[in-house]
Amino acid sequence: MDESWTLVNINRLIMKKIKNYIKTFLLWELWQGLSVTLRNFFRPSTTIQYPEEKTPQSSRFRGLHALRRYPNGEERCIACKLCEAVCPALAITIESEVADDGTRRASRYDIDLFKCIYCGFCEEACPVDAIVETRIHEYHMEAPGENIMTKDKLLAIGDKFDNLITKDKAADAKYR
């Protein structure tokens, strides 16, 4: 082995030891960390005070489902069962019948929220934009059976959030 080479290495090791000793003595790394803290201390805050504060949502957010109506109040859903057929989680159950006015209507429209994976396929499949996924993501169930969203519940959500849904659909329309 080359003798001079070994000597250089030993020198370096000694220098490193001295440097570390001084750094330890001066609490160098602590100051380094504190400087990050100090920098962020003056940055604007990103924490959200949920539930008082909320993050912004995309108009395409896929949350709780709703069934929509036409502006004249008529239910949109025609019980074509395309959503039921496309649902990969088999979460939707529909029964259809001839309504009093002779049209095709769902006599039962159930979505099992325990099965649903919020993929949004039902919304994509619907030929009349009846079933949609809203931005609602805060809901809970207290009793068994509440996980089933019946047609009445879904229509009620649609009625309540009609403005929002209409706006969201309009915002997304140009990309479709």
Binding site: A79, C80, K81, E84, A85, S96, E97, V98, R104, R105
Partner: peptide, 9 residues
């Protein structure tokens, strides 16, 4: 049978 089911199900 009108409107009571779909052929695929």
């Amino acid at each position: 049978y009108r409107y009571s089911a779909r052929s695929w199900e």
